[in-house]
Computed example of a mutant assay.
Amino acid sequence: MGYESMLADIKSSLNGKISDVEDKIEKLKKAKKDIDTLQEEAITEIKDIVKPELGKHWTGTKADDFDKGREDAKSEASKIVNDKYNDYMASISGEILDLEFQKATYAGELVLANTAGDLLAKGEDYVEEAGKHISKLKWW
């Protein structure tokens, strides 16, 4: 296989990998936005857990137990919406960073491949130098 066809395969593969990574990044960013919206909605709904307030006619241990149950539910829902939300969002952000690093790595490899292609286009005097650039490609 000549350098030209090898470079064409490498470039095609790298462009495909970059496209796949970009798709994953966009999906994760959309998921973050959707989760933000859901969290805002949940915070609003959590406030409603303790509504309506018990009137003056609701007294005694049953009323106290009922109020305590609502407060416990509000507290637990708040933990989920706030604490677990933050952990989940941090996990998604970390994944996005990993994918952006992958994308940058692939883009760097593509620059090397393009440089090798440019050298090949200059003629036979540059084939050896182009071969050196091709050998630097990490994924091949």
Rank of each mutant, 00 (worst) to 15 (best):
S5H: 02
S12F: 07
K17F: 04
D20I: 11
E22W: 00
D23T: 12
E26A: 02
K27V: 00
K29H: 05
I35H: 05
D36K: 09
T37W: 06
Q39V: 01
A42Y: 03
A42C: 04
T44L: 08
E45R: 03
D48F: 11
V50Q: 14
K51S: 10
G55R: 03
K56Q: 01
H57S: 14
T59W: 08
G60Q: 10
K62W: 11
D64N: 15
D64Q: 15
F66N: 10
K74C: 05
V81K: 14
V81G: 08
N82I: 13
K84P: 08
Y88D: 00
M89W: 04
I92F: 01
G94V: 00
E95F: 03
E95I: 03
D98Q: 07
F101G: 05
A107Y: 07
A107K: 15
G108A: 05
L112M: 04
T115N: 13
L119F: 13
L119W: 10
L120K: 08
K122G: 02
D125L: 13
D125K: 13
V127D: 06
A130V: 13
K132H: 12
K132Q: 14
H133F: 15
H133S: 09
I134T: 09
L137C: 02
L137R: 03
L137N: 01
K138Y: 06
K138N: 08
W140I: 11
